[in-house]
Amino acid sequence: MAALGALRHCRAPGRLRPPHPTAGGGSSSSRSSSSRSSSSSSSGGGSSAGSSRAAAAATAAATAATTAATTAATLRLAALRGLRSWLCGAEEAAGWSARLQRYRLRLDSAYRGSVRELYGPDVAAAFFVLSCGGSARFQGRDEWLRPDARGGCGPELLRLRDLPVVAVDLSGSAVDYGGLDDLARLTQLQHLDLSGCRRVDDWSLARLHTLGASLRELSLAGCPRVTERGLAALHHLRRLRRLDVSDLPAVRHPGLTRILLEEMLPRCQVVGMDYADGLEPPPPPAARRPP
């Protein structure tokens, strides 16, 4: 009877309690899988964001480097352009200065023509020398007449019109062939200094033949345009006693030129050139073999 009661109790459907479904376990597994998926997605998103930031930083650095290089190149071109314009301006200014100086010399030459007619060739020559920044000395006077603060000459020049000019210093001036016309009219000029005159050339030296009867000292030191041909034209200066021909870069054979000058002007002391300048040393004598 007890067994039958137990059997009935087991078959009664109302008394049986089914176990809880495994939905809770499935939800937990799904939550774990979703958390894994979310973590994996978040980790993937973080890595992609980091790579994007690195690429953006690299792009920004490349852009900055390109901008800096472009700016440096632009500044360099601007500096070179400015330097070129400055050099062109300086060259143009130098050209204008030379043209203005030549124009001033022509005007002075025209003015000296009228001065020569009124006061004679010596006053006109002295006026030309002073206008070039040089100095002149008249006969019987120890002091040199020099230009005043404005670059001109004072009334003292007119008081010396009865005296001849015996010495002229035009060193470093812009005198050229045309400017020597006034000096060529001086009949008692004894000393002439043309050292450092960059425009004195061979034609200018040929213009000095009219001074052969009086000129005793002549300096041509540092005249870059003087060559052997111009020095050969000095044979007319028979009374020359001293000739300075030092530092003449256009003379190729200074030693031979000195020999030529001493043959042309035997009474003149030639200074500034050595016999050995421009000459090749003789070959050493051949060694003799012992007998």
Rank of each mutant, 00 (worst) to 15 (best):
D162E: 14
A60M: 04
S214G: 08
H253Q: 13
R137H: 02
V166S: 06
S52L: 08
A72I: 05
P155K: 08
P18A: 11
S42G: 12
A55Y: 01
R31K: 14
W86K: 14
V168C: 07
A213F: 00
D247G: 04
D142M: 11
A55P: 00
H9L: 09
L186G: 03
Y177K: 12
R161V: 01
Q269R: 14
R84Y: 03
G82L: 13
G196D: 08
D176R: 10
F138Q: 06
P282W: 02
R81K: 10
C10W: 11
L170S: 02
A79D: 10
L260Y: 00
Y275Q: 06
T70L: 12
R252A: 15
D142S: 15
R288P: 02
V123C: 09
G140T: 04
E117P: 00
Q269F: 02
V115M: 13
V270F: 01
L248M: 06
D148Y: 05
S47Y: 07
A286G: 05
S97V: 02
S32K: 14
V166K: 06
E143C: 05
D277F: 07
L237D: 02
T71G: 03
S37D: 09
R137E: 02
L194G: 03
R11V: 12
A73P: 02
Y111M: 11
S27A: 15
G5R: 15
Y111A: 15
S32R: 15
A184G: 15
G44Y: 10
L237N: 05
L183Q: 05
R161T: 02
G26A: 15
L158A: 12
R150H: 12
D247R: 15
P291Q: 11
E143D: 15
G255F: 08
G89P: 00
V270M: 01
G140R: 10
R11C: 09
R17V: 14
M1Q: 10
R141S: 07
S48P: 00
A233N: 03
D142E: 15
Q269M: 08
D162W: 09
D193Q: 10
L208R: 08
E280W: 10
Q269E: 10
A3I: 11
L260Q: 13
D277S: 13
R104E: 08
V168F: 03
R207T: 07
G50A: 14
G196V: 08
G278R: 04
A221N: 04
W144V: 03
P291W: 10
A232K: 00
T210D: 02
S48G: 05
S173F: 00
T71Q: 09
L145H: 05
G89C: 09
Q139R: 13
S173W: 00
P18C: 04
S37H: 12
R198T: 12
A57D: 08
R239Q: 11
A61W: 03
V123K: 01
G152E: 09
A23E: 11
P147M: 04
L192S: 04
R288T: 09
A110I: 13
S39Q: 09
S52D: 06
P18N: 01
P18K: 04
E228K: 00
L118C: 11
M273T: 03
